[in-house]
């Protein structure tokens, strides 16, 4: 699967007089994992929703390296309301197949359920699962969709530390060749999984895309380089918030 790079140029979003962000430019490199961080309310979720085509920007352009549109090539995992409560976990995971008139691949669904540690829960409804289990089921759906571009808005926030570490490694492994944008509040998660970090500042501050990480994710939690990057990222976040 060939994943394209995504070029964002002079992107702006405003609601009346209120400027959320303005003239934001960056590139999501092809087949790389990029994490987007920033204080609450700076517009991270709005930015990722604009990139996904879920809301229009006020200004700016979004293009891909192969010239094709992002629509139809994107797997999305939102922050909340991830699963359809009336569908079983199995049908939630294979929902894209149902919507596009394809047969759902039961073997693949079973394999994904097993990978995210939800074996035996396929026929349950989401109400029977905990918040963390629902996030894992939503991740399984994102993986089932098998798209070259993946956008995730705080996908692991409800997981306990152990499960989060395991699922992060799984996601990094299974999405290693995709163009991924991850919104997160967790510097450790960002440094562990990413090739590059984006720090979004308040309206006038723009975006800081200078932090590029070496080596291949996922990095070990006790990796010295990861700890060093994390400290650097914290300084960036403080500067952006100043």
């Amino acid at each position: 699967m060939k994943s394209p790079a995504i070029h964002v140029k002079d992107l702006g979003l405003r609601f009346g007089e209120h400027v959320v962000f303005d003239k934001v430019s960056f590139t999501l490199p092809a087949g790389k994992w990029v994490s987007l961080l920033g204080a609450s309310g700076v517009g991270k979720t709005s930015l990722i929703r604009i990139l996904a085509g879920l809301m229009p920007p006020t200004s700016g352009t979004i293009t891909t390296s192969d010239g094709k549109p992002i629509a139809g090539r994107l797997a999305w995992m939102g922050q909340k309301d991830l699963l359809y409560p009336w569908l079983t976990i199995r049908n939630n995971i294979a929902l894209s197949a149902r919507l596009t008139g394809r047969r759902s691949d039961h073997q693949r669904v079973d394999a994904l359920l097993s990978q995210v540690g939800l074996e035996g829960y396929g026929d349950q409804r989401p109400a029977a699962l905990s918040g963390g289990m629902r996030q894992r089921a939503a991740l399984a759906r994102t993986l089932y969709d098998d798209k070259p571009i993946v956008m995730m808005d705080e996908p692991f926030s409800a997981l306990d530390t152990i499960t989060r570490t395991r699922i992060q490694a799984l996601a990094a492994e299974l999405l290693h060749d995709r163009t991924v944008l991850l919104v997160t509040h967790d510097p450790m998660e960002a440094c562990r999984l990413s090739h590059q970090l984006l720090v979004l500042a308040s309206a006038s501050g723009g975006i800081d895309d200078s932090h590029v990480l070496e080596g291949a994710p996922p990095r070990a939690p006790n990796d010295h380089y990861l700890l060093h990057s994390q400290a650097q990222l914290l300084q960036q976040l403080v500067r952006a918030n100043a």
Binding site: L54, A71, G72, Q79, D81, S96, L99
Partner: peptide, 11 residues
């Protein structure tokens, strides 16, 4: 909105 976003992205 979370549920309708997925439908929108699936066209």
């Amino acid at each position: 909105p979370g549920l309708s976003a997925y439908f929108k992205l699936q066209n």
